[in-house]
Design a protein around this nucleic acid. Structure first.
Lengths: 166, 166
DNA sequence: ATTCAAATGCTACAATGTTGCATCAAAAGC
DNA sequence: GCTTTTGATGCAACATTGTAGCATTTGAAT
């Protein structure tokens, strides 16, 4: 697993915490979808916007804690559910049987992900577009395509650890 | 979720149970990797070989039960772990935070998967090859690519259910 | 300030997967 | 065929991830 994070450290600022926001305002995003503007939702959106890679529920929770924001697991799950439902965020099935979340980009900005099978890290490959129009059996409707490259990231590759496909 | 299966029915033969085996013998496969040839491993391999789509741990367990083979959850997990470790099978991260397993094909036979976001079913798209050589950042090693198409399968699409991205 | 549905924060639970350890059995040696 | 030995199994207990129900709080409309 990939838990080098300082657990519930209230002072340290994780590297995926918001630095600047060249994104649509979280408040506006929420309001535009007819939802209530709450601390939790704002913080979640800003955290996702600032992230350089898809975040796990756990990582987002840590960011909220760092921002001194309510920290109930269920609330966070529901906030994320709502964002996904509204199309603001999207789930991607990172290994480790836990969802990861990222801001949903419009069609043009879709990108692939790289999954390091050694450290479990997932990162966005902005340069690699996801394939678009493959032939599907009759009756199937395509919503979106997800392209995941599996292998070893630069850090893990250098350390040359032996590893399974896991 | 997708649990229409008859739980622990000892008589019914699920549609993914072995019918014929145009595949390498399970015994040989196991022995070739230096493992012990046990009922569990044989049955798991044969089940996977006969399957038309990647199977969840649960589905494999049901197949074992149908074949009157020991049914301990942990044993099955470990058998699957071993197969993956040996490169005989591979895990794919079907949504629903549960792994799915399929026999690992060699390079030429790689295929994409379709994930129905409504019923959770996953099926193999033999005709759709996975993309192969995208540009990766320096230091990254590519092991395999996974292409998942999300949408509604023929059954769900016809029923026209409204559904989230989930 | 009042109202009221939408969000929250409990608690309790479900599903999926893992660890430790005693027991069993596959295949190797005799 | 019998014994040995180590890998595989089975069980119980636990960890992690995610859900459900319900009382309470709060955003924002009046």
């Amino acid at each position: 697993m990939l838990h080098q994070k300082p657990a519930h450290d209230q002072t340290a600022m994780p590297d995926y915490a918001p630095h600047s926001h060249p994104h649509p305002s979280a408040r506006d995003l929420i309001a535009a979808h007819g939802g209530r503007v709450t601390r939790t939702r704002i913080a979640v959106i800003e955290t996702l916007q600032a992230a350089q890679h898809p975040l796990s529920h756990d990582e987002i929770g840590a960011a909220l804690a760092a921002a001194d924001i309510a920290h109930d697991r269920v609330t966070l799950y529901r906030a994320l559910d709502w964002l996904v439902e509204q199309g603001i965020a999207q789930r991607i099935a990172g290994g480790e049987r836990a969802w990861r979340f990222e801001i949903r980009h419009d069609g043009a900005h879709r990108h692939a992900h790289f999954h390091c099978d050694r450290c479990g890290q997932i990162l966005c490959l902005e340069e690699v577009p996801t394939e678009t129009s493959p032939a599907l059996p009759a009756g199937f409707e395509l919503d979106r395509t997800e392209l995941v490259l599996h292998g070893a990231c630069a850090d893990c590759g250098r350390q040359g650890a032996k590893a399974g496909t896991r």
